[in-house]
Each structure stands twice: as structure tokens, then as C-alpha cells.
């Protein structure tokens, strides 16, 4: 089954880190992606730019409404995702627990809607 692991992190925390700590953080994510790849479960992943770069769009009364900023204005913002293909939810949770984001933020695990063949 395919799952998306969405990482929610406090963006302010990142800028509070020293340069060495930031490098260590990036290296941990790189090692994590490497482990996912070696295990043959990684379908795709991306890191997102900060929440302040987000723009939301909706059609309201037939007219597009465009707003600055992320949809949910909370301290923890969607910072990236990993899409993985594993046997079951427990396997997905095991990978989520290894994600560095689980240590300094939250990882949300959601099954993908299966595509009709």
C-alpha cells in the first residue's frame, strides 16, 4: 500500500539552529531518504519552501479569491513529504518514527487513495 508521510515542523525552530546543527539536520534527512531508497520503498519526496511563501486560492461566489500565506496558520507547517510503498500501516508508522521530523515536529501518515487500474 502507498502512504504519504507529511512532515509538520516549526519553521522558526530551523532558523534558531546553529549552522552546524542545520547541517546535521539536513544530513539526517539525507540519511533517512537514503535508507528509504535502499529499502526499496520510496516513491517520491520533496522539501517545501517556508509557509510564508504559500498562497491559497479558492473560488468564492464565482470569483477566485487569492490569499497570502498557508491555509492553516499554525506554528507547525507542512514542510515536506515522503511517499512510500510498504506492506501495511504498521510498516508506514515504523518509517514515520524514523523520520527526523518526528523528533522535532509531527509526521502525519495517510494512505493514498488507490488509483483505478
Amino acid at each position: 500500500m502507498s502512504y504519504i508521510l507529511m512532515t509538520y515542523v516549526n519553521e522558526a525552530g530551523w532558523f534558531a539552529l546553529s549552522k552546524a546543527e542545520q547541517e546535521q539536520g539536513v544530513a539526517a534527512y539525507k540519511a533517512y531518504a537514503e535508507a528509504l531508497t535502499k529499502a526499496g520503498v520510496l516513491l517520491g519526496s520533496n522539501r517545501l519552501q517556508g509557509g510564508s511563501t504559500a498562497t491559497t486560492v479558492r473560488i468564492s461566489h464565482g470569483k477566485p479569491q487569492v490569499l497570502d500565506g498557508p491555509y492553516v496558520d499554525s506554528k507547525e507547517q507542512l514542510g515536506g513529504y515522503f511517499i512510500i510503498d510498504v506492506a501495511d500501516l504498521d510498516a508506514a508508522i515504523a518509517w514515520a518514527a524514523r523520520c527526523p521530523a518526528a523528533g522535532h515536529g509531527v509526521v502525519e501518515v495517510r494512505p493514498l487513495w488507490p488509483m483505478p487500474a
Binding site: 540519511a31 537514503e34 535508507a35 528509504l36 535502499k38 518514527a97 524514523r98 523528533g103
Partner: peptide, 13 residues
């Protein structure tokens, strides 16, 4: 690299 990627405890990482 593999050990780091597989570890879930930030301190051990």
C-alpha cells in the same frame, strides 16, 4: 549513513 537513516532516537542519531 544507513544506521543514521534507520535510527528513530534523535540522540542516538
Amino acid at each position: 549513513e544507513m544506521a543514521i537513516g534507520l535510527e528513530r532516537d534523535p540522540a542516538v542519531r
